[in-house]
Amino acid sequence: LQLFIKTLTGKTFTVEMEPSDTIENLKAKIQDKEGIPPDQQRLIFAGKQLEDGRTLSDYNIQKESTLHLVL
Results as ranks from 00 to 15, higher is better:
L56R: 01
I23V: 12
A28K: 12
D32L: 09
G10V: 03
N25C: 05
K11V: 15
M17V: 09
E18P: 05
L43K: 00
R42I: 09
E16P: 06
N25V: 14
L69C: 02
I23E: 00
L8W: 14
L50Y: 01
I30A: 01
E16Q: 10
I36D: 02
G35K: 10
L26M: 05
L43Y: 05
L56W: 02
I61L: 06
K11R: 07
F4Q: 10
Q31R: 14
I61E: 02
V70C: 04
E51N: 06
I30V: 06
S57E: 10
E64V: 07
K27A: 01
G35S: 06
D39G: 07
Q41N: 02
L3F: 07
L43D: 00
E18M: 15
I36K: 02
H68Y: 13
P19R: 09
M17W: 13
F4M: 13
P38M: 10
L56N: 01
K63S: 15
Q62F: 10
N60R: 07
G35I: 02
H68N: 08
K33F: 10
L26S: 00
L56Q: 00
Q62V: 11
V15W: 02
T9P: 06
E64N: 14
K33T: 09
G53A: 09
T9I: 11
R54M: 11
L67G: 02
P19V: 07
S20R: 08
D58S: 09
G53R: 07
L50T: 03
E51V: 11
L26K: 00
L67A: 03
I61Q: 02
D32W: 15
K27C: 01
G47I: 02
K6I: 12
T14M: 11
D21P: 01
L71S: 14
A28R: 15
K29M: 09
F45E: 01
I36T: 12
S57G: 12
T12F: 08
I30P: 00
F13M: 06
A46R: 11
L1H: 11
E16V: 12
Q62K: 15
F13P: 00
Q49Y: 08
R42N: 08
Y59R: 01
T14L: 14
Q62A: 14
T12S: 11
V15E: 01
Q49M: 09
L56E: 00
D21C: 03
T9M: 07
Q40M: 15
F4W: 10
I5Q: 00
K6A: 15
P38A: 13
K48G: 08
K11M: 10
T55M: 13
S65G: 06
P37H: 13
Q62R: 15
L1N: 05
Q2K: 14
K48C: 04
R54I: 06
T14V: 12
K63N: 09
T9R: 13
D52P: 12
I44A: 05
F4C: 04
A46P: 01
K48D: 06
T7G: 06
P37I: 05
K11S: 13
A28H: 13
H68Q: 14
T7H: 14
